[in-house]
Design a protein around this nucleic acid. Sequence first.
RNA 1: GCCCCCAUCGUCUAGUGGACCAGGACGCAGCCCUUUCAAGGCUAAAGCUGGAGUUCGAAUCUCCAUGGGGGCACCA
Length: 501
Amino acid sequence: MDTSTLLSTGLEPARVRFAPSPTGRMHIGSARTALYDYLLARRTGGQFILRIEDTDTKRTVPGAEQELMDGLRWLGLEYDEGPDVGGACGPYRQSERRELYHEQVTILQEKGAAYPCFCAPDRLERVRRERQKQKLNTGYDGLCRSIDPDEARRRIADGERHIIRFKTPRQGSTTAVDVLRGPITVPNSQIDDYVLIKSDGLPTYHCGAMVDDHLMAITHVIRGSEWLSTFPLHALIVRAFGWEEPVWIHLSVFLKPSGKGKMSKRDTSVALDSGYSIYVSDLRDFGYVPEGVLNWIVLMGWGVSEGDVMTLDQMVDRFDIANLSPAPAAINFSKLDHFSGTHIRALRTEDLAARIKPYFTSAGLTVDDARLLRIVPLIRERLVTLDDCLPFAAWFFKETVEPEPEELIGKNLTAAQSADVARKAYEILAGLPAITLTTAEPPMRHLISDLGLNANQVFGILRAAVTGQTVSPPLFESMEIVGKEKVLERVSRAIIILEKM
RNA sequence: GCCCCCAUCGUCUAGUGGACCAGGACGCAGCCCUUUCAAGGCUAAAGCUGGAGUUCGAAUCUCCAUGGGGGCACCA
């Protein structure tokens, strides 16, 4: 089947939908599906649609839908149609499309491809156990298939509780084509008479998704491989309606970092303990940049031969569904760090400044924008996540710093020797018209050789004195920003501390 | 138990019968740079799950085995 390649190379605009159920937090698996949806839509000049599949009223959790929308927007995956933006095929919440499903399923019943079932849950349970004992497939036994349509109508009119089932062909087999795997054939005996409409009147996924994909003119269905087993059923339903099938693409699953099995609750908490998470909002809170997260997840299940650092637009240019991988992928968090840091380094100074500013203000610091702009180039290549800006630069916005006395002592020196070094450095710095990298470094280098010490020892003392910490951005550039007055003040304070030791 | 899917360095992957003594990236190791921490540069180690076939020729096609994954709900 070459249609997939054809369609994905931009000849025809694709209408693609991301259809999550609002039952929990948005994780990277969903994000990656949405990303691929988005890429295919943009690549072909089509539309990317958000549809909320909230037909399980018991499992729907408040706030989940909002988290989904926030997550998509944070990642930069703007959708063209959706619950909060509208569109020509709305409503975009399945719970608001009840009548539509009933209309369609009625048509299916008239075609003889669906039927009402009055069996109570406890009978279903009994049947299931019985068939299991006989080593048969644990499906519905089809009892209600034989009910006369008129009698069924009467019972429904009497208000009898019922559901609608799909009448799966008993004989033969069904073949459906997945872009990544080719034709998949399953004997029809393996496909149950699945429920289409539940007794609460809402459709199951099998019904809701198929009806909506058709009504919304979806051309490509990208979803998780957990749907592979019911894939032939879905093809059967679409065909029973007489509709054209979309192009089907089943993505691989994400495995835990070890590659042995999928992420469990335990794996999730282990990740959390190391500062990682599979949840999109956590990643945002941890200071990862969306560009990095996107680059990270896009490469799990898709590959490029070279040049794997990409922006969203660059992904759009290169994306092709035919290159997706059907094999499961193990999550690799250290790669997330790599892509996050790489994209942070690529940000323009103003952009990065705007992104890290909130971290300082949240820490209770008052941020001077002009100063922040000068700090950014100094810390840019040191950040893996945005919140790393705090340990590197928070001290810039503090009136005073509090170095640990021991840290003021130079390597292999005594406190007294260190005080002496600090005094000499003070004199040199005090004699300068202004402290900058170009004015301060040469004389300080001279001091080092005059004293017969090394740069590490002398700069270490000054670093602790001026920044209050042992790890910091480059010393002289930092001093330049802090200003001569404050540098001298801090060095003299360090001298006093050292003399008291 | 039944059905379905998958299989290239530790991990993500490129590879679509000859251009592959298998390319890139992360990580790891070493070296260089260096003012701490980074970043950057260079170098190295590391792989086609196994077995049968098809073919002049297989990582690439077929079959089997093994391993892994998914599913068997009035959940999605």
